[in-house]
Design a protein around this nucleic acid. Structure first.
Lengths: 165, 165
DNA sequence: TTTGTTTATGCAAAAAGATTGCATTTAATG
DNA sequence: CATTAAATGCAATCTTTTTGCATAAACAAA
């Protein structure tokens, strides 16, 4: 039902994924630029949704201009390779779309911690039905659970306790 | 399964709701200010999630300062009276929480149109379980479906057709 | 009603994030 | 190597969110 996100794809798998995506993009008219190659690698190596600023902090991308990353990310989103996720932060987050169904998340509003949640079957069915039975096109969904993780909940209890003393 | 949002609560019902919320807030230390009274009325009269800028356009709120609305909205959110919803727009949207379960939405990414979607049972159960069986506290969820509504899909087809001619 | 205290408000300004225009560079193509 | 189209960096703008501070309004007590 719920999995923490410890298991990033192994380096070689990630590289393969990035390479495959890159190939498909090149066929679609993308240029093999330094920024594109590096960004795909970084995003394949870390499946979590991260802000533009965060992606920009990756070693291989630090020298890149922020605006470049911004425009590149929009292109990748349009190409259906990347998706935008709202994690309750002010800035939008982006992540590489996995080959399978995209994950949903459980977010700690206190520490920002993230756990992956398997998409409820009902949500998938609803999504499919919207696309098939109604006139809606290109339907996707976004589901997030927000709360305070056990760790933070405990700490805030301690804090409250200390405050009384 | 899906309902368009034609049925805003009747004026009197909305007023009652606003009055009830106001009373509860006053008990909790809120001051009965012009801005508070008007904002609650407007939000009760229109259940849709709207941006701060949009709420500020309401007749009774136009003379109010935008920052006032901003701070008031945050207070209402903290008080659990208002919730923040991400509708894919750059600005955050706010809406009064209904007495029952909060609605989920189907959003047209082309025209911004909004339809209400009943929360899948599985999502509610998942949410409850997170709160009961795991150590997570104050769990809530946000579920949105995004797509292109029949109207916009048709128009874009026409546009594509015309473009060929 | 007056006084004092607390909270809300307006104004100004800053910080953060998203977005565009334009001149230059880079990648692909022949 | 020359040509062309796309990508990049830089500067600047715009929108949204956020804060500080002086003033005004609401509330409670005298």
């Amino acid at each position: 039902m719920m999995n923490s996100i410890a298991s990033a794809p192994s380096s070689s798998q990630a590289q393969d994924a990035a390479a495959g995506i890159l190939a498909s993009l090149l066929e679609r008219g993308f240029k093999r630029t330094h920024a594109l190659v590096c960004l795909l690698r970084e995003m394949a190596a870390d499946p979590r949704p991260r802000t533009l600023a965060e992606w920009g902090e990756c070693p291989s991308l630090q020298e890149r201009n922020g605006v470049t990353l911004y425009r590149l990310m929009l292109k990748l989103e349009q190409a259906g390779v990347v998706r935008r996720v709202n994690l309750g932060e002010r800035a939008q987050c982006f992540q590489l779309l996995p080959s399978g169904p995209a994950p949903d998340y459980l977010v700690c509003t206190s520490c920002g911690g993230l756990e992956q949640v398997e998409t409820p079957l009902e949500v998938r069915v609803l999504e499919e039905n919207l696309a098939r039975k109604t006139g809606w096109k290109a339907v996707r969904h976004e589901l997030e659970f927000f709360g305070v993780c056990p760790n933070c909940a405990e700490n805030s209890n301690e804090a409250a306790h200390l405050a009384v003393i």
